[in-house]
Design a protein around this nucleic acid. Structure first.
Length: 787
DNA sequence: GTAGGGTTAG
């Protein structure tokens, strides 16, 4: 009977069992184990319940059957029942339930079993010890696993070595896995068909292609090269390391069509920029009638996302619906991500709403989608919903939400997210990077720098965030120093680093440096400048008064200029009164961004300044007839969770009279220190008097006056604004002078005696911050639009 | 009768 069940001839074994006149414990457990091993658990259970006397073997047979067929919970229940009935578990039973813990990641239960194993002395059994190593490793307790593994000393066999290698690999330490594999070989333990897939996976996680190729050599010599697990692990290793030729060769030499190997091949193509090949691989799977699984779709959808292939997206989505795979989160989350990346947020939402058991990845896909499409409020709202519905945030969603905070410059909320991240004890490079960006964008460059200094690991994104952050905060020279430090640490700059660097140069007026960096981009780092870099360079020339160089660069551009380039040029033309070039730049912008009011107003003002009132009227008429309206400037300041909002010449605030007299007081002080209102930048259809009035009672100035009135001197004044525009030049000098005036108001003696500091004033716009505490007038920016 | 392995979306 034993022989029959071992060869899978269960029905014959059963007949034999039924005919037996005397059934001992051994025959009961044999037939139960036979059913259990085949996954026929109901029949196994029925026999188990009928068995007159249950030995440890009978219990173990059923328990291990449950564990092998995904019924770990039933196995645990049975294990408890076994102990309640006074039956002592054996090393066999322990091994089975430990495996259940490994699969479900149940550390607590695993620790209890460890305790039992120690009490019963089974922990020295190599099977149990290996089960414990595996359990701890799968529960992410790699140190405990390591410790137990060491206690095995000279009893380590290839199974325990493999468990340890897999443990390292699954805990993200591919290098330790490789080291462990080397030790195993050094001790003369042979690898088998289990060891090879495990070590190859480790190689793939750290892109150790050379070592992987050496393992490949061992495989060929060992004779395990025909095993499908080994072959697919080889395909995966080569594909992930980017050696797609070797991966393909591996795939082609396989005798059977293996879905997992094809999936790996597709992943490799997506990760290494061969998205076009994905579709043909996918079609091949189809034509060969392979059983496509839930792992196939995410990578395929990923390739559609990066290729913006909306047509195939739809048809594969249809296929997913037809085959029922939208029920898998793995697939539906990838659909949400794909649609979001393609900018089809409505489709992304639809799939998201249909997802029944939303997990943290479902939420993150949509949150990130909204954030990337600039809908930061929506992203934060969703994040809120996610928390409310009880989904625990992880590092991905936190990083995303912090960049939404940066986009909105909502410092207080960002700080709360930061605090919760610290409490969570998580560690994440992306979160730290997002924090640097968020603090810098909110004007808290010291906090950004603090996060940066606390980081143990940094990458090019970290350094770029800092470089851009300092530049945005008016500290372009610091940006350049950080760039030098970055290079010194051996980190290579990327496309974005140069945008930040050139931005820093143009805003700090560092023409020579900017030029040098711009040239080094392609020459030293092989990075071709994009329109963003040209825009910075044109801005740099424009700000330094070298309009001819700006023009020359425009003509030399080997990429098509985009709106940012024309905006930079228009800004430069306005400052230097080049009407002809300004006209052409504005006309380009009318085409590219027809509903943007800014270029209309800039051009109109340029006409007005040149005394061409007819053209001025023509542009204004054009705006009117096209229904283009400038968003009215609005500033607000937060105080005790209350928002105080101001429009230009606003008299709606309860403390209006105080605010106006404070502002008048400051204006007098400002004039005393040499401020002359520059009417050039006001709207030109105002009369002379209201021009000066408009300048004096502009929204951010009302907000600043209110801040000065209500906040103690040491508290920074943080103004929020909806626009960043032409008035900023005036505002910049104003704010600077206000700072000076305030210093005069509070004499150095007074400041010292009170231990106070001057107010730091910052004005936050949609996408950046102007900080004016220690800024010199030379550092001021000339802004490009109107308010 | 017991232990270990390959694809995994943000």
């Amino acid at each position: 009977m034993n022989e029959l069940s071992k060869s899978g001839r269960i029905d014959e074994a059963r007949k034999m069992f039924d005919k037996m006149s005397e059934r001992d414990e051994f025959s009961w457990s044999t037939i139960i184990a036979a059913y259990a091993n085949l996954g026929r658990l109901d029949e196994a259970r029925k026999l188990f319940d009928e068995a007159p006397k249950k030995s440890s073997i009978t219990w173990s047979s059923l328990i291990s059957g449950y564990c092998q067929h995904g019924c770990e919970i039933e196995a645990f229940e049975l294990f408890c029942q076994m102990r309640l009935e006074g039956q002592k578990p054996s090393p066999y039973t322990l091994g089975s339930v430990l495996r259940g813990c490994s699969i479900l990641g149940l550390r607590q239960r695993g620790e209890n079993l460890h305790g039992y194993a120690m009490k019963s002395g089974f922990d020295s059994n190599v099977f149990v010890a290996t089960g414990l190593v595996d359990m701890y490793a799968k529960c992410k307790c790699i140190l405990e696993a390591e410790c137990l593994f060491e206690t095995l000393t000279d009893r380590k066999n290839n199974v325990s070595w493999t468990a340890m290698i897999t443990g390292y690999s699954h805990n993200g330490d591919g290098y330790k896995a490789i080291e462990c594999f080397r030790d195993m070989r050094a001790e003369g333990v042979e690898s088998n068909q289990f060891t090879f897939p495990s070590i190859l996976t480790a190689c793939a996680t750290v892109s150790a292609c050379d070592f992987g190729a050496q393992v490949h050599g061992c495989i060929v010599r060992s004779g395990f090269g025909a095993n499908v697990f080994v072959q697919s692990a080889l395909v995966c290793m080569y594909a992930k390391c980017g050696d797609l030729r070797s991966a393909r060769r591996g795939l082609e030499t396989m005798e059977t069509d293996d879905v997992i190997s094809y999936n790996s091949m597709i992943v490799g193509c997506v990760r290494h920029g061969f998205e076009e090949e994905v579709l043909s691989l996918f079609k091949k799977m189809h034509s060969r009638d392979m059983k496509i699984d839930a792992f196939t779709f995410p990578s395929v959808l990923n390739s559609f996302a990066s290729m913006m292939d909306t047509k195939n997206s739809k048809s594969v989505h249809c296929l997913i619906i037809k085959t029922g795979f939208e029920a898998y989160n793995l697939v539906s989350n990838a659909l949400v991500d794909m649609y979001a990346k393609q900018g089809s947020l409505a489709c992304a939402c639809e799939v998201f709403n249909q997802t029944v058991d939303k997990d943290v990845i479902s939420w993150t896909s949509l949150v990130t989608g909204y954030a990337h499409n600039g809908s930061h409020e929506e992203a934060i709202k969703l994040f809120h919903d996610m928390i409310t519905t009880g989904t625990c945030p992880d590092e991905y969603v936190i990083a995303s939400i912090l960049s939404a905070c940066a986009g909105l410059t909502v410092l207080e909320f960002g700080k709360q997210v930061h605090a919760n991240f610290i409490k969570s004890g998580l560690e994440s490079l992306s979160i730290d990077n997002s924090l640097v960006t968020m603090y810098a964008k909110c004007g808290c460059i010291e906090d950004a720098s603090r996060v940066f200094n606390s980081m143990r690991v940094r990458n090019v994104i970290t350094w770029t965030a800092l470089i851009v952050g300092y530049a945005q905060n008016g500290k372009g020279k610091d940006s350049l120093q950080f760039y030098d430090q970055m290079i010194a640490t051996g980190t290579k700059p990327d496309f974005i680093t140069f945008i930040g660097l050139l931005f820093a140069c143009s805003h700090a007026g560092l023409v020579e440096n900017g030029l040098q960096y711009f040239e080094s981009m392609d020459k030293v780092y092989g990075i071709k400048p994009g329109p963003e870099h040209y825009a910075c360079m044109i801005d740099l020339w424009g700000r330094s008064g070298r309009l001819n160089e700006a023009k020359e660069l425009l003509n030399r551009m080997d990429v098509k200029p985009d709106a940012t380039v024309w905006k930079a040029l228009l800004g430069a033309c306005r400052v230097h009164g080049d009407l002809e070039l300004g006209e052409s730049a504005a006309n380009k912008l009318f085409e590219l961004e027809p509903s943007n009011a800014v270029p209309y107003i800039l051009l109109a003002n340029m006409y007005s300044a040149a005394g061409r009132s007819e053209d001025f009227a023509r542009i204004r008429q054009m705006m009117k007839s096209m229904g283009i309206r400038k968003e009215p400037g609005c500033s607000w300041i937060e105080m005790n969770s209350h928002v105080h909002e101001f429009m230009s010449e606003d008299r709606g605030h309860p403390r209006t009279s105080e605010i106006y007299s404070k502002l008048d007081e400051i204006m007098i002080l400002i004039k005393e220190v040499g401020y002359v209102p520059d009417k050039k930048f006001a709207l030109h259809d105002m009369d002379e008097e209201s021009k000066e009035l408009g300048l004096a009672y502009h929204s951010e100035k009302l907000a600043i006056a209110f801040g000065l009135l209500t906040l103690p001197p040491v508290v920074p004044i943080r103004i929020f604004k909806n626009l960043r525009n032409e008035m900023s030049l005036v505002t910049a000098s104003l704010v600077y002078l206000i700072c000076q005036a305030v210093t005069m108001e509070y004499t150095p003696e007074y400041i010292n005696s009170r231990g106070l500091e001057i107010h730091q004033v910052s004005i936050q716009h949609n996408n950046t911050v102007d900080n004016f505490d220690k800024m010199s007038l030379d550092d001021q920016e000339s802004e490009t639009t109107d308010d």
